[in-house]
Design a protein around this nucleic acid. Structure first.
Lengths: 320, 320
DNA sequence: CTGAAAGCGCTAACAA
DNA sequence: TTGTTAGCGCTTTCAG
């Protein structure tokens, strides 16, 4: 069933039907009535596809994440979806698995399906193939990047200052009198390097110029943290700063198992923190705020307003 | 830029261009060449919107979840997306928050945007407004339901036998010599009731007809589990069976805190199980398989094949 | 093998 | 206030 059926039923032209559906005014209350009746009677539902073809807007946005199973991405995607729902948009979710190729494929698909805008969450750091691609892409369709970084024109960035977050945590620990901080890096994204840098900076500022030597690189997940702990505690260490709650959970497991007198801190302030014993202090990277900002920025662009090129959000410590 | 531009550049008609793009054959290698050159040169990307309008397929599927931040839904959504990606489909993710209204709104939106099919994950049990709605809906667009249940015609169901899962766990515990099992129900979905029933059944079969008296109802989350534990351990209890890993984590926290000689088991076999001390035995409800089956069913329908009305997947115990 | 032309279902000038 | 008509960008008969 289409708009012609409704027009016929109502005894008016399709233009009039279109007008009442889109509340464009210039319709007599009489016609209005007739059309509304027909609408009801036929239980008509307009094709947004056809509509999009002419108005050049699908009211659909794309969201690229690396892995939606990661609570961090899930939280971001959740907020983005809720916020856009309020504004009448739907969300296409795309999991890149961290592959640049897939990222590009998805971006192409979104363009072909005429997504109104795209939000990319988390990136391997600048310079990848996808970044080159984005230079062209962002001129055609609005892109906002969450917690990524590149000098790409036309791309808007919303970032949580992860580096600062780790700095804050380190300063707290040092103030607590910890002498031997260690950092675990579990990823190779832009954000992961920022955090690492925060660790090094904080130590340097407090008279430990060799922070880099107190860093262990490992993979993601609880087990990786556990394995890293094995190595770390072979030398003196009374505080392990982690770039992820999950990693911290692994370290904590080791600490508990061998009754090691050291403290461990996480990052993300996920629900894991409360679930563990003892509860985990963590850096709250404020996913909610970050996601909301990203939506606001994209929404502004879609509404023809201008938006900040770069939005920086400051994390905060949650001590337990 | 559109297909006309390509046609002009190649010096052929749009029909020919369309033919080569869609590999419909009946094109001389000469024309083929010309078109391909033009395609390259213009860097042409066809509008899938316009295409969808005529072929009546968007190659987009909708997925309704209650809350993508829940690791269970995240895992399902992840697999669905990956599997459909392979098949050339994109996924629209919709979070209902458990609201029937929102569910209906989303279903309508998906229909208007002409999603080729819909997968609904998790349901409050049959009889809601949305179920009525689905009766009509499913006739227009293919729907497969994951872990929900209703007597809705045309809707396909893929379910993990959660009830059996809890039964298995109870039997294991009883075999271990546990005398006082207790169950914690933390939700009011169809699945939650199934699990509960599994507990009651298992106990009954082993000579405890009053299983219902050993059930505590609570909310979701670690804290809810902790609170529930307070009550539970006021009477004899040496094993707490939980309907969620999260709840189990809360109970475990209490058990550890007060050194209570009881065991606790979870459900979902999430990564939490490994992170906790001691690690948590859990029912693996095989999200991956469930999601894959759902995709296979929907894909079959979309390909014009027939598919099972109901697919039942048996969970398994993961003992730690 | 190729192209003209008629849709797909809608919006938006433009006339009336 | 209304209706006619020309697109939007593509696929697909149907002739040739």
């Amino acid at each position: 069933m289409n708009i012609y059926d409704v027009a016929r039923e109502a005894g008016v032209s399709i233009a009039t039907v279109s007008r009442v559906i889109n509340e464009k005014g210039n319709v007599s209350s009489k016609s209005m009535q007739k059309v509304n009746d027909a609408l009801k009677k036929l239980n008509y539902s307009p094709s947004l596809l056809a509509r999009a073809l002419t108005v050049k807007s699908t009211h659909t946005v794309g969201v690229l994440t690396i892995d939606i199973r990661d609570p961090y991405y899930a939280a971001i995607a959740y907020t983005i979806e809720q916020e856009f729902y309020k504004r009448g948009y739907n969300m296409m979710l795309c999991n890149t698995g961290g592959s640049e190729e897939k990222k590009i494929e998805y971006l192409n698909a979104l363009a072909q399906k005429q997504a109104d805008g795209v939000i990319i969450v988390g990136s391997s750091f600048g310079g990848g193939r996808a970044d080159d691609f984005l230079k062209e892409y962002a001129q055609k369709i609005p892109v906002v990047y969450i917690n990524g970084y590149s000098e790409i024109k036309d791309v808007h960035f919303v970032i949580c200052d992860d580096r600062r977050g780790i700095e804050l945590m380190c300063e707290h620990l040092l103030k607590q009198g910890k002498k031997h901080l260690h950092y675990i890096q579990d990823d190779i994204t832009f954000s992961a390097y920022q955090k690492r840098q925060g660790f090094v900076d904080a130590l340097k500022r407090h008279g430990f110029p060799d922070g880099n030597k107190s860093i262990t690189e490992t993979g993601a997940g609880v087990n990786a943290g556990y394995e890293a702990a094995k190595k770390i505690f072979q030398t003196p260490c009374d505080a392990v700063v982690c770039g992820e709650d999950l990693t911290a959970a692994g370290v904590l497991k080791y600490i508990n198992e061998f009754s090691i007198p050291a403290v461990v801190t996480g990052f993300n302030n996920s629900y894991l923190c409360e679930a563990l014993m003892p509860p985990l202090s963590s850096v709250d990277n404020r996913v909610g705020e970050v996601a909301c900002s990203a939506v606001e920025v994209l929404d502004a662009i879609l509404s023809g307003k201008t938006a900040a090129e770069k939005t920086l959000i400051t994390p905060r410590l949650v001590l337990r």
